[in-house]
Simulated assay, not measured.
Amino acid sequence: MISAQTLDNAVVEGVISPAQRDRLHQMEQALTLSPDDDDSAQDENLRLIGGGNDLFVTVGIVLLTAGFYFVLSTLIENRPIWIAGLLAGFSWLVAEVVTRQHRMKLSSTVLSLLFAGSIAAVLLLVADARYTIRMPESLWQLLALRQIVGPAGYLVLGGVIAAAAIYFWRFRVPILAGVVAIAATLLAFLQTALILYDGVAAGSVAMPQIEEMPELLRASLYMPLICGLVVFAIAVALDIHDRERRTTWSDCAFWLHVVSAPMLVHPLFIMATGQDVVLGNIEPDTSATIMLALLIASFVYVALAIDRRSLLVPTLAYFGSLGIYYLVNSTANTTGVPPFALILLVVGALIITFGAGWQHIRRLIVRPTLPTSVLNKLPPIKA
């Protein structure tokens, strides 16, 4: 068996390519797993950290970046665009060694986020300098923002998407899939707002009245829901493309599920229960509790079917924090059990139960309830 260090040396000396090295790692991992392995060996492999050396190098990158930033702030003071641009170039150069040659997972993730954040800062500064966006002081100034918000938003969000795509093409860092998904969602929100504004300005869409604002806010939930469904569908497509979870596309799907979950959960919760945790209107009755329990069951089943705890964790965290929010702020009588206390019990029990036997539960619930034609496209259920 060839050691990982030997393969890394072979890449450095040009004997094999980084892609060939990664493929050899995947083949070795596949050979070490057998159907008789326990659930711990069959768990969803997040591949977020590559070991102690990866963590050690990550600390070094953070310190080096901080030092580089303070040096730049001293040498080229009052040049924020230059500082952000040089930080982006710095992260790219370090990634050529850390990511391209050594494939350190956590370090690569930190560098990719540094690059994306630096590029976003550059684009924001450029947009601010070019379009001079200021907080409006009157209604007319707010209406005048239409001519500059659109181009500025396209520049920033489109630039982030393009930069993340180029960086991903070069380094194959999965978390950038989530960055692209978030930027694309914000771009969809911007475009929708501009279309509605143009409709109001042209007279084809009526200006909402004050009493219509609650309904307007509720209708606005369709946008994150649609975006969440699109991101979720892309993630599922990547999961189907890589059923065995052996390539970078599977890791990209993980981050897409993390991004899509909140966009699906919150709108569905408000639409199904009539509650609004954002505006502080949350006094769920028994029917709302039943609807919430059904939502939890639906998300649990979908997560089991696609074998993705990355979809389930944000979902349960949202519902759990929602229950805590209600219990803390509720002024109901103290003699009865608040409905959301049951939700907390359900969420806690689900987390413990699924953590202890995920694959067993998949076999018991998913296999008997889905046809073979669908099961053959989903991640395999371990025997």
Rank of each mutant, 00 (worst) to 15 (best):
H266F: 11
S287K: 10
E28K: 14
M1D: 14
R21Q: 12
L125H: 04
H102C: 04
R47A: 06
A19W: 04
L217Y: 12
S204R: 07
K105M: 13
D276G: 05
E44K: 05
L157Y: 02
S17W: 02
T353D: 11
T109S: 04
L124M: 13
T109W: 05
Q209P: 13
L113R: 04
I161N: 05
I234A: 05
V122I: 13
Y131P: 00
G323R: 07
L145C: 02
A162R: 04
S17A: 02
N329M: 03
L86Q: 08
A41I: 00
G51H: 11
V15I: 15
N78P: 15
M223T: 10
L114H: 03
G89S: 11
L155N: 04
S118H: 01
F354Q: 12
W255Y: 15
Q20K: 14
D198I: 07
D38T: 06
H241K: 15
V160N: 03
A356M: 15
R79P: 07
A163K: 07
Q147N: 12
P379G: 09
L342Q: 11
H266C: 01
A121K: 02
I365D: 00
L217H: 09
G14N: 10
P214V: 05
K105R: 15
T273D: 03
H241R: 14
G52L: 15
G336N: 08
P214D: 06
Q42D: 12
D38E: 10
A317W: 01
I324C: 03
S287F: 14
M291R: 10
F354G: 09
G348M: 14
E215M: 09
H241Q: 15
I166G: 00
L194G: 01
G89T: 05
N333Y: 10
F115C: 03
N281G: 04
G85S: 11
E44I: 10
M223S: 08
V156T: 03
R243A: 10
G51W: 10
V258T: 04
F189D: 03
L46M: 06
V347E: 12
L370G: 02
L221C: 05
N329Q: 05
A201P: 04
D242N: 13
C252W: 00
P267C: 02
V149I: 14
S118F: 00
G14V: 06
A288W: 01
M135G: 01
L72T: 02
G355V: 03
L344Y: 13
A66T: 11
A201N: 09
R130Y: 14
A188C: 03
Q5G: 10
I61N: 01
L86E: 09
